[in-house]
């Protein structure tokens, strides 16, 4: 019964300027599972969609502005701010979010954007790390991500990142909890269908962080994963856990080719 509700055919143009790629051919690694990848934007109501077309209406941008303030704020024992090293984010951060999570050679691990920011905070600024998916961390993620809007998601899944990517893929297809549902049960097999009042999307993360009308704040990828797993009556993983880092890399790679939209607006 897939496609009973389906994705709509609207076009997302940001600030009358940037036309977003919200539907495109699935990346090669997904071609067995689906032909087309679709942004979660297409599954929301016209009213919710509208809020994301203009930075003055997108309440997620208010939080990105808090991130901008933090960018210039000196913190920690080294008397540095992000700007001390990275200058103007509108130049240095362009395209960065599109490639995260990403393998870090020095640390020999796949890092999410939040992990990278915390590494800069602790090792370079001498500041405390931010709690995973906390307000400060999400605001900064939204600010950094906003400088990639309109650019295609492009995470690397081969080379040293491959093992983590495979772990994430495994988690994506595992049927967790007493309801025995995998991410794929809802977001691959049933996108376009209604599950009670919710219109199931492909569960893409090109729009994260997302401002949700439901809780009136910015929401992180791992918090969303946690909520979805909890809804299968499962014992969840925690934000920042290796499982969610791997899952983030895998899910992000399913959106390779869609435009980065974060911060986006969802219900």
């Amino acid at each position: 019964a897939a496609f009973a509700g389906g994705a709509d055919d609207d076009t997302l143009i940001l600030n009358d300027e940037i036309e977003m790629v919200t539907k495109t051919a699935a990346p090669d690694h997904l071609s067995d599972a689906m032909d087309e990848i679709i942004s979660g934007w297409h599954f929301r109501s016209d009213e919710t969609q509208q809020l994301q077309t203009d930075d003055f209406e997108n309440q997620g941008m208010i939080f990105a502005d808090y991130g901008a303030e933090a960018w210039d704020t000196v913190e920690g024992s080294e008397d540095k701010s992000c700007a001390s090293c990275h200058g103007d984010a509108a130049e240095s951060m362009v395209g960065v979010a599109a490639t995260y999570p990403k393998w870090n050679d020095g640390a020999e691990e796949v890092r999410t954007l939040q992990m990278q920011v915390n590494d800069c905070r602790t090792t370079r600024m001498g500041a405390e790390p931010w709690k995973y998916d906390s307000g400060d961390a999400i605001n900064m993620e939204a600010f950094v991500t906003s400088h990639s809007r309109g650019m295609p998601v492009n995470v690397a899944i081969d080379g040293p990142a491959e093992a983590t990517w495979l772990d994430g893929k495994d988690i994506y297809y595992t049927r967790y909890g007493q309801l025995e549902l995998a991410c794929a049960s809802c977001h691959e097999q049933n996108y376009g269908n209604y599950i009670r009042a919710d219109h199931l999307s492909q569960g893409q993360i090109n729009g994260f962080p997302t401002y949700r009308l439901k809780n009136a704040k910015l929401n992180g990828v791992h918090s969303r994963f946690k909520g979805c797993i909890r809804d299968t009556r499962a014992h969840t993983f925690s934000p920042g856990s290796p499982e969610f880092v791997a899952l983030e890399l895998y899910v992000k790679s399913r959106g390779n080719g869609l435009s980065v939209e974060g911060p986006s607006v969802r219900n």
């Binding site: 967790y176 909890g177 007493q178 309801l179 549902l181 909890r230 499962a234 014992h235 969840t236």
Partner: peptide, 22 residues
């Protein structure tokens, strides 16, 4: 994808209802 409503074993990471806990 339909859940089993009268089953108590064989789950992967079963939770305590919708709490997210084990």
């Amino acid at each position: 994808v339909m859940p089993a409503f009268y089953k108590t074993s064989g789950f992967i990471r079963p939770g305590d209802g919708y709490t997210g806990k084990a």
